[in-house]
């Protein structure tokens, strides 16, 4: 009898260890895979990336030369998107966190934000094509592309800005209101200064996303091969993610330009990762520093 319970306990213990080991192995395998992808692109991309590569124009439909216009194009697109999305997103967040009541209207706004966050990026592309390119007549241009990207990253900015605003303790607002300040004075002087770093986190994440997306810019701005810099917001531009797609799939001898593909992938990856890391570091820094 006694030995039976003992062996059962031993078996249970073995199962426990096995299960724990399995879960640990699965979790670490995710890290290994991510590490492998990043390393593969860094190791094979580094030889191709030098000053010439990022500062010269492409030649022979991209199969030779650098990627300067793609970098500049992506910079314009991201700048345009953030100029539109940041004020809109932050203002939406202030409304939702500081003014909105629990009414039907607020529920509709929240539903819209959730919906917007789930819309596939290619559908944003179709929307941009229908509204900006055709209906407003902007054509395939920086303006159309930036606006499309802006609405795509809007929910990211709203959600994280609101989170930052809600983290500011209620007592700060109450103190200010009790001293006779108006609602906006309270928000402007007692809430926003503490929430702003967190609000910027969302915008930085949005920048990273806008820089890396391909599908929304396919029909709204991206040029296959355009070895010059844009002169107005109504120009088409090349963009890094689309350029990588073209190099990898649309050139007749894709094998030969493999170093260029890896180089472009590395530049794009670094660009996006720098923004994401900056956002993560900034967020962790302020979570640690600000303790109420």
């Amino acid at each position: 009898m006694k030995s039976k319970t003992k062996s059962r306990a031993a078996r249970n213990k073995a199962w426990e260890l096995l299960a724990a080991g399995l879960i640990r192995a699965v979790s670490y395998s995710i890290v290994v895979v991510i590490g492998y992808i990043v390393l593969d692109i860094v190791v094979k991309g580094l030889p191709a990336v030098n000053w010439d590569f990022i500062s010269t124009f492409p030649r022979k439909s991209g199969s030779e030369g650098g990627i300067l216009p793609a970098i500049v194009g992506t910079a314009y697109l991201v700048a345009g998107a953030i100029v539109v999305a940041m004020p809109l997103g932050m203002a939406s967040a202030v409304y939702l966190s500081e003014y909105a009541s629990q009414g039907r209207f607020t529920r509709i706004i929240r539903l819209a934000i959730i919906t917007l966050a789930g819309v596939p990026s290619i559908v944003f592309g179709l929307f941009g094509l229908g509204l900006f390119v055709i209906f407003f007549g902007f054509g395939a241009s920086i303006l159309s592309g930036s606006l499309t990207l802006a609405f795509m990253i809007l929910p990211t900015i709203i959600v994280s800005s609101e989170e930052a605003l809600r983290a500011v303790p209620q007592s700060l607002r109450e103190g200010s209101l009790a001293l006779g300040a108006t609602r906006w004075q309270t928000i402007y002087r007692n809430v926003l200064p503490y929430a702003l770093p967190g609000m910027f986190t969302g915008s930085i994440l949005g920048v990273g996303r806008a820089a890396g997306e391909t599908a929304p810019i396919l029909f709204t701005v991206a040029a296959f091969y355009l070895p010059r810099l844009p002169s107005s917001v109504f120009d088409q531009v090349m963009a890094l993610p689309y350029h990588l797609y073209v190099l990898a799939t649309q050139l007749p001898e894709a094998e030969k330009v493999l170093p260029l593909q890896y180089g472009t992938a590395l530049v794009l990856l670094l660009l996006v990762l720098i923004f994401n890391l900056a956002a993560i570091v900034l967020r962790n820094h302020f979570r640690k520093k600000v303790q109420w």
Binding site: I30, D40, G208, G212, Q261, L269, N276
Partner: peptide, 23 residues
């Protein structure tokens, strides 16, 4: 260590993942 790694994965552009898949 794990959480930033997962966040890095979330940040890799889809075209880069596609390129990795292709080659």
């Amino acid at each position: 260590v794990l959480k930033p790694f997962v966040e890095i994965l979330a940040g890799i552009p889809s075209v880069v993942i596609g390129f990795f898949g292709l080659v």
